[in-house]
Amino acid sequence: MELVLNAGPVVKLVLLILVYFSVVSWAIIFYKQLVIFRAMRDSERFLDFFWSKKRFDAIGQGLDHYRHSPLTVLFREVYRELAQNRRQTEGQEADNLVADLGEQERVARVLRRSTTSESHRLEKYLSFLATTGSAAPFIGLFGTVWGIMDAFHGIGTSGSASLAVVAPGISEALVATAIGLVAAIPAVIGYNHFVNKINVLTGEMDNFSQEMLNIVQRMSSRVH
């Protein structure tokens, strides 16, 4: 405790920044854990649900239970797109083939857009973890260097260079590096963990998109 309190202003500022990084990165870790855990859980359940139903509108009714999954979002977007399409084609007698081709094209676009936005949602804040992981040790190191500089300056003014005089200053300074590492390590671990999980989810989203496209294609060929 006194190590921190006795430090100089610059070291204190550094410690403050590091504490800020640590607090925020831990908040992000909690947040991401929550989001990704839910997303994984809901995705799994949604896929079960999806394959157990034959009709889109039936699926559309049950979406609310799986709202955390990105797949749900993909399906919902596609469903909305299709519904809009139907409303339009009911109104006017258009060329079916053209319409069909347009439909597939639009669904594909919707899927791409949704996939992108969902990945973004999942990856939100992760960059902060990366930054913390890489920058915090350096900030801590800076604090240490500064602290040691200060300590040596103090030795210069006090004129005594015995270990008893030098050691407290250096140990104070080293606190900064320690805190930097304490902030950085969970951030790096969390970052890798989440990136891995998000890759899995993105893969699932890609697969699901292909499935959806196939289904839509089959649907349109069945209609005509």
């Binding site: 607090v23 831990w26 908040a27 909690f30 947040y31 949602r121």
Partner: peptide, 17 residues
């Protein structure tokens, strides 16, 4: 989407610290 509230998690993190 009902994303979790970040502010609350921040508070949680602070408490943990």
């Amino acid at each position: 989407h009902q994303d979790p509230k970040f502010g609350r998690l921040l508070l949680l993190s602070l408490i943990v610290h």
